[in-house]
């Protein structure tokens, strides 16, 4: 059931005693502490290869976590703007490895390598296959449904990434120091969740009041 945690649940709105118009807002901030070492995906053992693979591995992008509100006030859904985001393919990696966007966002997938890549996803939230295209070209995908989309390359099995699609703007990607902050949250009581590489924290109930700044730290194991 955890996989559906991003899907908007309408009845939750009934418990959000909030009127968006004219309200002030608060902030939630804190830190996500990763107690496990997120190893990068190794290339498959290239036993049939005539030489060593050239892919470079980097775990720094595995440290990025996303903290988000499980539900949001009704007013958060009133406007859906079409924005663009970019997930590059560079050095046989998706950059960034984690992208957090709102519904309606168009993600461009440029190929910055001198080899073919083939971005695809079989996730139920958004299924697509962009085919093979060379360096200098880019193809877009629009994400209209909230959820988690795992993105892969059909040619390089070690290339993978996450696109987290939210139906509201109350989420934050952690920085290199693990810190995050979610601004402009309308007063109310929410469930706050931290996510890293498919691992999620238990929902934490947080009450936001006018001008409040809540400090919420998470530990993911």
């Amino acid at each position: 059931m955890r996989k559906y945690f991003l899907v908007f649940v309408p009845f939750v709105l009934l418990f959000v005693p909030f009127v968006m118009k004219g309200a002030r807002s608060g902030m939630i901030r804190g830190r996500v502490d990763l107690r496990r070492v997120p190893l990068p995906v190794e290339p498959r053992p290239n036993v049939a290869g005539l030489g060593a693979a050239t892919a470079t591995l980097d775990i720094s992008d595995r440290l990025a976590s996303v903290v988000y509100l499980e539900s949001a006030p009704r007013g958060a859904f009133e406007t859906v703007e079409t924005t663009h985001a970019v997930m590059d393919q560079r050095g046989e990696r998706f950059v960034p490895h984690v992208l957090a966007i709102t519904t309606g966002t168009i993600v461009d997938f440029p190929n910055s390598d001198h080899i073919y890549h083939n971005v695809f996803s079989l996730s139920r939230t958004r299924t697509f296959d962009l085919g093979r295209y060379a360096a200098g070209r880019s193809k877009p995908v629009r994400f209209d449904r909230p959820g988690i989309v795992r993105v892969f390359c059909d040619i390089h099995s070690h290339m993978n990434a996450f696109v987290l699609v939210f139906s509201h703007p109350f989420f934050s990607l952690t920085g290199a120091d693990g810190r995050y902050h979610i601004d402009n949250i309308p007063p109310g009581t929410y469930n706050l969740i931290a996510w890293n590489e498919g691992v999620t924290s238990e929902p934490r109930s947080v009450t936001v009041t006018d001008g409040s700044v809540d400090e919420e730290d998470f530990t993911l194991r």
């Binding site: 190893l39 990068p40 995906v41 190794e42 290339p43 498959r44 053992p45 591995l57 099995s157 070690h158 993978n160």
Partner: peptide, 9 residues
């Protein structure tokens, strides 16, 4: 779903 990495990769 991915290769199993042991001994620190």
């Amino acid at each position: 779903s991915e290769p199993v990495a042991l001994v620190g990769g």
